[in-house]
């Protein structure tokens, strides 16, 4: 499969006399294959928006390589801009123009046929409100307009930063369907979002960034599998046998955590071996359930941003690759 988007070793450093030197992007890598819906995840201040802005020529990088549709950017951006639709961060439009005027002016600037304006307005559900001024729109409607502006060019690569922000549940579902439909039509979609349930549902692959570096990447299932830890929950017919079962499994090299009515096992490759081991000692299981992980828990684990009772995590406190267990102390602002 060919790469629509390639980023290698991207670096962006902000220097401030007051705040010192901060690496917003610290050798970040990313690769998006054609036709994918690709999730781009990271905690606040991790470098997501900086990456997208740099990719789109709004920020000048300090190092690294970027390519869109095989063209090196930012040098070739004027060449590929017509094939890239993007919204970056919150949708921002001139408040006194109507949605139709806004899109019409963008279409004019980009040599897009005027008929396309009505097509995208229909697509994002703004057809009947297209003549109203943007200042009267809700956040969700502005978001729809932003998506419409990104779709106006009928791009090959669609980059959406938090497209579900402000959308109602119906709107989120419509957006999900739209993303999938666009991907099926051959469009590649890069989706930055904090709604991880949505990402898990619609994305083929994900890239997770923390403190300016990639900390995980690959197909969603693969990323989940890499961080499932083989967790298994075990209940027995007789709760008084839990102590014996825990001792037996412990001797067999399984990590066991005791709970009042069940055991939690970790590092189990094949749950069937647990059942057999216990049955041999006449300990019979009533429940043997692999504990499924979701993208949210994986994200929190990878980025070390899970809330800890009694602590107030700061924006820059997240995981940095190569420093396991070390809540980062550098990098991050400006993203």
């Amino acid at each position: 499969m060919s790469a629509v988007l390639e980023i290698e070793g991207l670096r962006k450093t902000y220097k401030s006399r007051r705040r010192g030197v901060r690496n917003a992007l610290d050798g970040f890598d990313m690769r998006v294959e054609a036709g994918q819906v690709h999730g781009f995840l990271g905690p606040n201040g991790s470098g997501k928006t900086t990456t997208l802005r740099t990719l789109l020529g709004l920020i000048q990088p300090d190092g690294g390589r970027m390519a869109i549709l095989g063209h090196e950017v930012p040098g070739a951006l004027p060449t590929v801009a017509g094939q890239v639709g993007a919204i970056v961060e919150s949708p921002q439009f001139f408040p006194h123009f109507s949605a139709r005027d806004t899109l019409s002016l963008l279409a004019g600037a980009g040599d897009v046929p005027a008929v396309r304006v009505d097509e995208v307005l229909e697509l994002v559900g703004l057809r009947d409100r297209a003549g109203e001024r943007v200042k009267t729109y809700s956040l969700g409607m502005k978001q729809r307009l932003a998506v419409a502006s990104a779709l106006l060019k009928n791009p090959k690569l669609l980059i959406l930063d938090e497209p579900a922000n402000g959308l109602d549940p119906g709107g989120i579902r419509e957006m999900r369907t739209l993303m999938r439909t666009l991907a099926e039509s051959g469009m590649t979609v890069v989706l930055s979002s904090h709604i991880l349930g949505e990402i898990q549902l619609i994305c083929d692959e994900v890239t997770i960034i923390s403190l300016g570096r990639r900390v995980a990447a690959g197909p969603v299932e693969q990323v989940l599998a890499q961080h499932s830890h083989g967790g298994v929950r075990v209940r027995l017919d007789a709760a008084e046998d839990l102590a014996a079962a825990a001792e037996l499994l412990g001797r067999a090299g399984v990590a066991v955590t005791r709970h009042p009515d069940h055991l939690m096992l970790a590092g189990v490759d094949k749950p069937a071996t647990v059942s057999r081991l216990l049955a041999e000692q006449h300990l019979y299981v009533s429940e043997l359930a692999p504990v499924a992980v979701d993208l949210e828990s994986v994200f929190l684990e990878i980025t070390a941003t899970a809330p800890v009772p009694g602590q107030h995590r700061q924006v820059d406190q997240s995981a940095k690759i190569g420093e396991p267990g070390h809540a980062g102390t550098t990098g991050g602002w400006g993203a």
Partner: peptide
């Protein structure tokens, strides 16, 4: 608006 325009005309 300027940022939007620059995404179209970089």
């Amino acid at each position: 608006g300027m940022m939007n325009l620059l995404l179209w005309r970089p």
